[in-house]
Design a protein around this nucleic acid. Structure first.
Lengths: 188, 188
DNA sequence: CTTTTAATTAGATGTGCATCTAATTAGATT
DNA sequence: AATCTAATTAGATGCACATCTAATTAAAAG
């Protein structure tokens, strides 16, 4: 698990913060079980257990092995140990705060410069301009090729200076251009 | 946090497995905040933040200090550290499995001896009998005083041998008796 | 190749809980 | 006392998701 990855941390917590899944974790820590055996032990139907196991599998918390018509699951101890080591370390916790504060700051920039979904003025500072550009690029779809005229027309909905904003979108690498055709850089 | 306390572990996970509360935790780790400040940073209304803070407070994850009309919250680092140390230790995880397995065993005993909500026969072994008695005592309310005749009449709904079962309920300390009046021992 | 066993996927249902607005409490200020 | 500020509590709404039944897939065994 990466530090600074709030979403992943949250996903781990959500997956584990459930009675049935926590019980599954406990059982599978000890030994291998089939879906049917687990359903029996947890007093649940097989589809329900399958559903939970899929979530655990997604995070690599368990491992599955096919044996005939039976699927046998066991805990991935390494992953659990890793979580346990990296969960709620001071760095993790501090990085959460950083994210929240910077999100709030970006929100404030947006409400300052956007009046009624109109860009009132292009910010001077690089940092604020980046926030506005990130907002602007969201008006374009990923995977679509836009001719320059259409780029201008979309930008014009929000601000008259299409030339500057179009150039900035490319300069900030949020969009790319080739032969007068523009497309959005896919988000990492 | 006690080992073997599945419910408490689950409660911690549930409280932390939520975007807003995890963000609160991150912020409060750094310094003190008022409810209004937090609402601003999280882009939530104050009642919502209050609601989340109450849950964190309940688990002693945060501390609150009144300052005029303002309530100032901060993280309780000790509690978080304790969680981090005790969460998902091999012992914790193993104890979950034990609980699940013994729950399943008790369920099996119940379905074996109960046919159509009728006790088919009183188990011989102590362990099984305890399971049945725990089930039977649940037919009585905590805090109510039952005369012997009523105890018998309730037991008779499930099995004819009221004398034995009534004696066993008292012997197992699940119920208490004084002057021919019976009452249920409150659950720990 | 048909049937049986075991699991997963699809789709429907219901419940828990996050969030909001409105009303209330409590302390501070005039 | 009356007003103002900050927070909590009450009550309503809506969404996320756990669970179920039914249908489907896949492998094993007859």
């Amino acid at each position: 698990m990466e530090t600074h990855d709030f979403a992943l941390l949250l996903q781990f917590l959500k997956v584990l913060a459930h009675e049935s899944r926590l019980k599954l974790l406990g059982l599978l820590a000890d030994r291998e079980y089939s879906v049917g055996e687990l359903a029996e032990l947890l007093d649940l139907k097989e589809p329900t257990v399958s559903h939970h196991l899929a979530k655990l599998l997604e995070l690599d918390l368990v491992h599955m092995r096919i044996d005939g018509t039976s699927h046998r699951y066991r805990l991935n101890h390494d992953t659990l140990q890793k979580i346990n080591r990296e969960l709620f370390t001071p760095e993790q916790v501090a990085s959460i705060a950083d994210n929240v504060v910077s999100d709030a700051w970006e929100r404030k920039v947006l409400t300052t410069y956007l009046i009624d979904d109109q860009l009132s003025k292009i910010p001077e500072t690089h940092k604020k301009r980046d926030v506005i550009l990130a907002w602007l690029v969201s008006k374009f779809e990923v995977g679509i090729h836009y001719p320059e005229a259409q780029v201008n027309s979309i930008i014009k909905r929000y601000h008259p200076d299409t030339a500057t904003l179009r150039r900035e979108l490319v300069g900030s690498k949020l969009m790319q251009r080739e032969n007068g055709i523009y497309w959005r850089t896919p988000p990492a």
